[in-house]
Design a protein around this nucleic acid. Sequence first.
DNA 1: CGGTTGCTTGGAGTGCACTCCAGCGTTCTA
DNA 2: TAGAACGCTGGAGTGCACTCCAAGCAACCG
Lengths: 155, 155
Amino acid sequence: MTLTETETTGAGADTCAGPPQGDRRPDGADKYTISEVVALTGLTAHTLRWYERIGLMPHIDRSHTGQRRYSNRDLDWLALVGKLRLTGMPVADMVRYAELVRAGDHTYTERFELLRRTREDVLSRIAELQGTLAVLDRKIGFYADAGRALASERT
Amino acid sequence: MTLTETETTGAGADTCAGPPQGDRRPDGADKYTISEVVALTGLTAHTLRWYERIGLMPHIDRSHTGQRRYSNRDLDWLALVGKLRLTGMPVADMVRYAELVRAGDHTYTERFELLRRTREDVLSRIAELQGTLAVLDRKIGFYADAGRALASERT
DNA sequence: CGGTTGCTTGGAGTGCACTCCAGCGTTCTA
DNA sequence: TAGAACGCTGGAGTGCACTCCAAGCAACCG
């Protein structure tokens, strides 16, 4: 048996991913130029080529003249990468994850671990941010009061 | 009337700020060397000097031989800076905030605005992170299932 | 009084994640 | 068929937030 993960967003419950990447072409007719992918993902062409150079992307199809032609699958991968980037995961770790995906099924546990660690990081980052909110609210309260005091002084 | 904000953490409800910065000296005897501040804040001496150079710190007292002597007030400021840094606020904005504090009471509304914007940023960052958690959990679930499937195959 | 430790300075270097450039070929539009 | 628009490459540059360096002074220890 071979389990294949179709990195597809599918009809699933993926919560909002920034730019509404609506207009996908049906599978089989899915050949996007780099500028279409730019429009779809919000990344720059520079960044897309750079992702490829550093091994963060699988090998991208080329047209007969050597231009990149991205597939729906590539777009799905980019969506995942975008999410991982939002978690604050360093690019090097994303490259590591990409390598594991390329390496095949026997890397499942390592991928699992990598994602689990990332999840922990996200949770503690959220807690950290909530800690800063407390301080921010205290300060903001101070300035709001001060503003009112200054205003009433003028009365 | 002049309202002074004693950037003091005081007896307030400041939630955990990383390293338990317990051992403060009483006001009046509050003269810390740079290495003591390093131990207290977790920052490096390099960073402390750099903060000063870029205007993120008020002028720090010096000993008769020109060495820095930090006060409790400086430590309080550093604690706030640490919190702001955790929010992801760029250093340039923190410098701007420091300038406003130095400039005096008439900058209250601008400080208020800066903190309010930062608060909004923190809230949307939290929302963003919670969005990534959904994706992460879906992936992690996939790998967990796959792991179980692979294990049962071996039975 | 020599050595170690701690602190000073200005300026240079680092790592990350892009971001841009020059110089070229290809493809589309008028 | 001219010219704009789009894409290609390797390599250099950018901005941020530190991070380190060399050279030198000051204080204490044996």
